[in-house]
């Protein structure tokens, strides 16, 4: 199968997946108790039953779930994600406004993960069984095990409160301002740590495997310097599995942003998502879920393509 056909086929498969995601999320959301109206008026003795019913009707929450879903999906298909119920603001505006913040944070985390993990993985593989390897494996295991909200709080405690290197609150500046980039370091580390740890472990394993292969012995026998052997031959081959992993990890970075954005007071999609769930703002929740789902599928898609570029032996069928 040619690459073009592969791309078309995969692109088409996004449609049923997204449809499934929307049905499941919509259904699960309606299984949770409470809706925006009950959130708003539950303990307000002034609101009468008739006023509550009028509000449900105005916000389209009065029909059966399947009907609400059909209303929603038919609007989405023409590009209308609806409004935030309480404020009447366009959901797509909300998502677009929050998106750059989350992308900036995600890129920072992702870059941090790669920059730390790849050299560490190489180092551990080359020094397999030595102290440095043990230490880096220990750190990797810790990185995977530490919950990121805790890591975030500890980083704030150490670097902001004790050492005073970073401010606690993001500066009131636009995203591209140098102060903002400086501020992004701690949340970036928090969000990237778990991924860095996973990548490092995979890097180490695949590198160790490659190092045992015959072409490595041949290259060494040819008299190539060790540095060239490792960085030019072994690294390229071991990167294949890392690329796949790095792409799938974008999903965990997006998911991690939910917690990290709350701890670091970062006004991104994750924080918006938490608020929307608490307020039972279904349109916002659906839009962010769909968006995230689409993003994850896309990342995997890109991984498959890059995979082929790195390893011409891979065929699509």
């Amino acid at each position: 199968m040619s690459l073009q056909r592969f791309i078309v086929k995969r692109a088409l498969s996004i449609i049923p997946i997204m449809f499934g995601v929307s049905v499941i999320t919509f259904g699960m959301f309606h299984l949770t108790p409470g809706d925006p109206v009950s959130q708003l008026v539950a303990l307000n003795p002034d609101v009468s039953a008739a006023e509550e019913a009028a509000l449900r009707e105005r916000w389209g929450l009065d029909g059966p779930v399947w009907q609400q879903y059909l209303d929603w999906i038919s609007n989405v298909l023409v590009g209308d994600f609806g409004q935030e119920l309480r404020t009447g603001r366009e959901v797509s505006d909300i998502v677009w406004r929050r998106l750059p913040e989350t992308i900036a944070l995600g890129l920072f985390g992702w870059a941090f993960a790669l920059v730390i993990a790849i050299p560490a993985g190489i180092y551990a593989a080359v020094n397999k069984g030595k102290l440095g390897d043990t230490v880096s494996r220990f750190l990797a295991l810790s990185g995977i095990s530490i919950p990121n909200f805790w890591l975030g709080l500890m980083l704030i405690l150490i670097f902001s409160l004790y050492l005073g290197v970073f401010p606690v609150l993001a500066p009131s500046e636009p995203l591209y301002h140098p102060d903002m980039l400086w501020y992004l370091i701690l949340p970036g580390i928090t969000i990237g740590t778990a991924s860095a740890a996973s990548i490092m472990r995979v890097m180490r394993t695949s590198m160790t495997e490659e190092l045992n292969k015959e072409y490595v012995t041949a290259a060494r026998a040819k008299g190539l310097p060790e540095r060239t052997v490792i960085l030019k031959h072994v690294l390229r081959n071991s990167l294949i599995s890392v690329v796949t992993l790095a792409a799938t990890l974008t999903a965990s970075i997006v998911a991690g942003s939910v917690v990290v954005e709350v701890v670091f007071n970062w006004p991104g999609l994750g924080r918006e998502f938490i608020n929307a769930i608490n307020q039972r703002e279904i349109n916002v929740v659906m839009a962010i879920t769909l968006f995230t789902g689409f993003f994850v599928i896309l990342a995997n898609f890109v991984a498959d393509i890059v995979y082929a570029a790195l390893d011409p032996r891979i065929r699509y069928d």
Binding site: L153, I156, V168, L169, S172, V262, V263, F264, N265, P267, R271
Partner: peptide, 8 residues
């Protein structure tokens, strides 16, 4: 400053 998280 809008800071929803109490510890932050």
């Amino acid at each position: 400053e809008i800071v929803p998280d109490n510890s932050t």
